[in-house]
Design a protein around this nucleic acid. Structure first.
Length: 214
DNA sequence: ATCCCGAGGG
DNA sequence: CCCTCTGGAT
């Protein structure tokens, strides 16, 4: 898609969702990291629902607190989230690694983040974007679907290609916010099933134009 | 390519 | 009932 049209897409998305931001509740870096790890193949609503009681009771819940709590108890608090046993195991190991290697703090660079269990490129990109204001592009199910439907980048299922294509095509003005604009478009409008094409604010710019098949 | 796997929506 | 959700590790 031409640069001018891409700029128009993000301009409209920005007007549609001026307050687009991370919707995972957290009071500190560690809580956000845990929330993002738990959000894999799960809605942020379900993650907030499971973590809210914990974070309300312990507003500064930290890596040390999670280690003290233990895997079994933590698993019970997150049971309502899909893939819970794997995630609980990863979170405990992650908390231990933070204690041992990073003074209990969340490392704010890609290399260290991606060494942590349950943390891959997408999660690292979210952390760097939300906590550091870095212009990263976390490509998840929403960003992949939306950017492919609109035609922002050439058709591919390779998420790294999509990430690089988007970063190259993005107007710098929206470099930091773009990720959340695409998330909101995907979450509330360009949904996987039954997308609301009839009332889509960028329908006239979309490659699909209401002929989405899946 | 396949496995991990619960709630919510349609 | 079936599909989807801010993926990651093997």
């Amino acid at each position: 898609m031409e640069k001018k049209k891409i700029e128009e897409v993000f301009s409209i998305l920005n007007k549609t969702w001026p307050d687009a931001k991370c919707e995972l509740e957290h009071n500190n870096h560690f809580q956000l990291l845990i929330a993002v790890v738990l959000s894999a193949q799960a809605t942020d609503k379900s993650v907030n629902k499971a973590l809210n009681p914990l974070y309300t009771q312990y507003p500064q819940f930290s890596a040390q607190d999670l280690v003290k709590m233990g895997e079994e108890k933590f698993l019970n608090t997150i049971r309502s989230i899909g893939l819970a046993p794997t995630k609980a195991k990863n979170c405990l190991k992650l908390a231990n690694m933070l204690q041992e290697n990073f003074d209990g703090k969340v490392p704010l660079n890609r290399t260290d983040l991606e060494q942590l269990p349950g943390v891959g490129r997408k999660t690292a990109n979210v952390i760097l974007n939300v906590l550091c204001g870095m212009p990263t592009m976390a490509v998840d199910t929403h960003v992949e679907r939306v950017s492919q439907r609109i035609g922002l980048v050439p058709a591919t299922k390779n998420r790294l290609e999509i990430e690089e294509g988007l970063l190259k095509a993005l107007p710098k003005k929206y470099a930091i916010k773009a990720h959340h604009l695409l998330i909101f478009q995907g979450r509330y409008h360009c949904t996987a099933r039954n997308p609301k094409c009839e009332t889509c604010p960028i329908e006239h710019l979309c490659l699909k134009r209401g002929v989405v098949t899946h």
